[in-house]
C-alpha cells in the first residue's frame, strides 16, 4: 500500500512539473520578445547570448512610435476602431438573422437558411481576388468601409447563435407576447440580454479576427495612411528594420497588448466558449 502511495505521489509531482514547464515554454517566446524590445541593437543578436537587457531602455519603442512612414499608434487606434465597430455591428446583424432562423415562421426560411449557411463552405482563399474586384467596383478601396463591412455577416456566426437560441425555452416569447412585445422587441429586450456568454465568445473572436487580419487590409488599403491597419504595418516594419529585431519586437509588444488584454478580461467566457463550440 505504501509503495503504491509513493508511486502516486511521484506521478502527480511529475504531472505538475511537466505542466508547469509546458506553460512556461508557451510563454517563453513572448517573454523573449519583451526582453528583446528593451535591448540595445548590439545586444539583441549578440554572442555570447544575453538573456536580460543590460539596461532596460525605451529607445526601440521611441523609434517605432515616432516612425513617420508607419504611424504605429495611429494604426493601432484605427485598427481598434474598425475592430470595435465590427464587433457591435456583426453581433447585431448575425444575431438578428439567427433569431429569425431559430424562432420565427417565415415563408422561404429553409431556402434563405441554406443560402446563408453554405457560405461557410466558401474559403476566403477562393473569393479573395473577386472580392477585391467587387470592392473595387463599389469604389470602396482605401476607405474605412472596405475594412469594416465585408467581414461582418457570416454563416458560422449565424449558425452559432441560432444553436444557442434554439436551446432557450419557448416560454420566453409567450410571456413577452402577453405583454404586447413585438418580435424585434422580444429579440432586443429578452434574447440579447440572455446571450452574454455567446456574445462575448463571438465578439472576442470577431475582435481578434479584425485585429489580426493581414491579407485583406494589405491589399485594400494601399494609399491612405490614416487607415493603415496594424498587421500590415508590422509586416512592413520588418522590411524597414531588417535584422534590427529590438525595434520590431518593440512594435510587436505594443501590437499584442489589446488581444491579450481582451483575453485576460474575458478569460472565463472565452475558455467556456471553447467548450461551447467544441462539445455540441
Amino acid at each position: 500500500m505504501r509503495h503504491k502511495n509513493i508511486l502516486y505521489l511521484i506521478r502527480r509531482t511529475l504531472a505538475y512539473t511537466i505542466s508547469t514547464l509546458i506553460s512556461l515554454t508557451c510563454l517563453f517566446p513572448l517573454v523573449w520578445m519583451i526582453f528583446a524590445s528593451f535591448k540595445k541593437k548590439a545586444e539583441v543578436l549578440a554572442t555570447p547570448l544575453r538573456i536580460l537587457p543590460e539596461e532596460w531602455q525605451m529607445g526601440n519603442f521611441r523609434v517605432v512610435i515616432q516612425n513617420p512612414q508607419r504611424p504605429l499608434l495611429d494604426a493601432m487606434f484605427m485598427t481598434f476602431l474598425v475592430a470595435a465597430s465590427a464587433v457591435v455591428l456583426s453581433l447585431l446583424i448575425n444575431m438578428m438573422a439567427a433569431y429569425v432562423f431559430a424562432r420565427m415562421e417565415i415563408y422561404g426560411k429553409k431556402l434563405i437558411w441554406s443560402y446563408c449557411i453554405t457560405t461557410m463552405y466558401v474559403p476566403g482563399i477562393t473569393i479573395l481576388i473577386t472580392s477585391f474586384l467587387v470592392v473595387h467596383k463599389l469604389q470602396m478601396l482605401n476607405t474605412f468601409w472596405v475594412l469594416l463591412i465585408p467581414g461582418l455577416a457570416g454563416g458560422y456566426a449565424i449558425f452559432f447563435f441560432r444553436q444557442f437560441f434554439l436551446n432557450l425555452p419557448n416560454s420566453l416569447e409567450d410571456a413577452a407576447r402577453i405583454d404586447g412585445c413585438g418580435r424585434f422587441g422580444i429579440f432586443w429586450r429578452i434574447f440579447i440580454p440572455m446571450s452574454t456568454t455567446p456574445m462575448v465568445v463571438q465578439g472576442a473572436g470577431v475582435f481578434l479576427g479584425y485585429w489580426n487580419s493581414f491579407l485583406w487590409p494589405s491589399i485594400t488599403i494601399t494609399n491612405n495612411k490614416t487607415l493603415y491597419q496594424i498587421m500590415p504595418v508590422i509586416r512592413s516594419m520588418q522590411t524597414d528594420y531588417g535584422a534590427e529585431y529590438g525595434r520590431i519586437m518593440a512594435a510587436t509588444c505594443l501590437a499584442v497588448i489589446p488581444p491579450i488584454l481582451l483575453f485576460v478580461i474575458f478569460q472565463k467566457y472565452i475558455v467556456k466558449g471553447v467548450y461551447l463550440s467544441g462539445l455540441k
Binding site: 508557451c26 501590437a255 488581444p259 472565452i270
Partner: peptide
C-alpha cells in the same frame, strides 16, 4: 489561461 495567451496572437506576429 497561460497556454491560451499565444492563441490570441496573429500569425504575422
Amino acid at each position: 489561461m497561460l497556454i491560451y495567451i499565444p492563441g490570441t496572437i496573429a500569425g504575422i506576429i
